[in-house]
Design a protein around this nucleic acid. Sequence first.
DNA 1: ATACTAAGTATTAAAATATAATACTTTCAG
DNA 2: CTGAAAGTATTATATTTTAATACTTAGTAT
Lengths: 267, 267
Amino acid sequence: MNAKQNTLFVSSLAKGLKILRAFDDQHTDLSLMDLVERTGLDKSATQRLANTLHVEGMLDKDPVTRRYRPSHAWLELAFAYYWADPIVGRTLPKLIELSQQLGETVNLAELSGDHIIYINRLPCKRTHFAATVVGRKLPALMTTSGRVMIATCPEEERKRIVETWSLRAFTPHTVLDREELGRAVEQAARDGYAIATSQMIIGELAIAAPIIGPDGRSIAAIQCSVSAHHYDEERLLKEILPALRDTANAISPTMRLPAIREFTPGL
Amino acid sequence: MNAKQNTLFVSSLAKGLKILRAFDDQHTDLSLMDLVERTGLDKSATQRLANTLHVEGMLDKDPVTRRYRPSHAWLELAFAYYWADPIVGRTLPKLIELSQQLGETVNLAELSGDHIIYINRLPCKRTHFAATVVGRKLPALMTTSGRVMIATCPEEERKRIVETWSLRAFTPHTVLDREELGRAVEQAARDGYAIATSQMIIGELAIAAPIIGPDGRSIAAIQCSVSAHHYDEERLLKEILPALRDTANAISPTMRLPAIREFTPGL
DNA sequence: ATACTAAGTATTAAAATATAATACTTTCAG
DNA sequence: CTGAAAGTATTATATTTTAATACTTAGTAT
């Protein structure tokens, strides 16, 4: 039916995943017909798949409204993820120290396609809930974490990325101009950090430093968000950046042959 | 094939979920044969299901070792969960305040079957990574959070729970005696909090207070973990408990007709 | 170096499974 | 109280999964 199928592709499973992915921040609980609409599957398929997910404990079902919701199992998967991600174990202790030291919210982000994804979040000041939640994906170019990771790529690749990766506005101040984004990335490549204001939320200052892998490329970034009411860029650079950098460097694995490896093509 | 099947059960999907659940803290990356062993599925099925999950972005695959790992998508599911859980949104801001006020690690837990599951974790002091990670499940009776939630059930149900729910030792000090656990639960019912030492980790003091739902039952608990090197029980009760309670009460929805609703049978 | 073993990958015929249509039941609004 | 919409259950059909097997690659021991 689908073009994607070879004989190693189990389409029923793929459809089931489609049901799971129908849930997001905007769609927290869905009726059968909601699922039909959001997945594009027909009513029968949706019925059987949702029922299976319910029986298997992946979806809770409100006995009165009959609406489905993500179950605790979704957090158990996150639990497994945390153990599988080698960066998390190395990073978290130092990240906690940093957040204590700074008294401000710090985050760990990784690249995921042309987005960043927040892996860990240590909120200190009360911040807008939506801003950074674990698992949130944002276009890499719109974020300081993303820019600082992109900045560790070879120049040619940086250029290509700035030209092609996706953009999206979040505030009236979000920079969408690729020329300007290119300058921000080049600046980050020179400075080893990235800083920005009101890109995701108005009145938010963000600064990020890369965690560098053994091949010289960034595998993750740590980022600090503060309120523009309490900080300006100058104070951020003076009071936050040094600790942020120290932490990032302390986490970064020792560079082995960075100059050589930098030219090795992907994977 | 399987006894569970009615016509609304898609067994391919269930098998796919089995693959996902093969990953945990002990099994962070699995080869095809590892998956065969852990799921009990045959090689062909495992091959097709794992391949499908890979193609769908649910499993990363190391191109050299051919081993599968949880992908970022697992955290995206956690993201969706957080928005769907009505407790999280109400709780998190106050939980952040509390953690700032106390300067100690605080957690949010919910009941999940006869276990508790950690929903949120705000680490302050550097703590043993394994202890409380988001998504970790622990037998409810072994934890202060669990006991304090159980304590809000009607007496008869409390008794039944203490008799039947699962137990597991984590340290030599873990209490496994149901009589003693019963006393701890009754104590929690009287006090409105629960306290324990070295139950999960040696040298850890834990205290928990329940978040009470509109029906008088506990829907969640907030818990604080501290080191026995810095605290004793007395100091915990004096310095931590008041703030913990205030926060729990502030979060608890207004009780509506608790006396009546308490007698309404389940669901 | 070479052969051997185990793991990973690909192909296919056979049949079990998921499907989609449809009928039945419940819920809610007017 | 009535009607429409959503949820649930059933069944014959055929599409999809299956399981056996063959092929390829990687790692190990000789």
